[in-house]
């Protein structure tokens, strides 16, 4: 029961969780019937999916002896850009949808 084993366990669990959410995002992309419903799926993959995998990678490389913090940069970048691209895709899909009442 060493720390190494514990960290190994944690990073394995993080990989499983991240992969699970990425997969669920893609399943939703195929399964759901309407564009606005489907649009909610990749936000899952980009937040928890990639986030968990990146944290697992940080732990893994730190265990190997080389502290690696690049992953923070990637996850920060994705967290900043994901809302922007989602927003633009909604705008592209809706353009001026007359079905939405203006306030």
């Amino acid at each position: 029961m060493t720390t190494t084993f514990l960290l190994d366990l944690v990073s394995s669990a993080l990989v499983i969780v991240g992969v699970f959410f990425t997969l669920v995002g893609s399943i939703g992309l195929v399964k759901l019937s309407d564009f606005m419903k489907r649009l909610h799926c990749p936000t899952k993959a980009s937040t928890l999916g990639v986030g968990c995998v990146l944290i697992a990678s940080m732990i893994d490389f730190s265990l190997a002896g080389e502290t690696s913090l690049h992953e923070l940069l990637i996850s920060l970048f994705i967290f900043i850009t994901a809302p922007v691209s989602a927003h633009l895709m909604v705008k592209a899909a809706l353009r001026d949808d007359p079905n939405i009442p203006r306030p």
Partner: peptide, 13 residues
């Protein structure tokens, strides 16, 4: 969009 996010995860794995 989903494909490129997934490919990032794939590359890291």
């Amino acid at each position: 969009d989903t494909l490129y996010i997934d490919s990032i995860a794939l590359l890291i794995l």
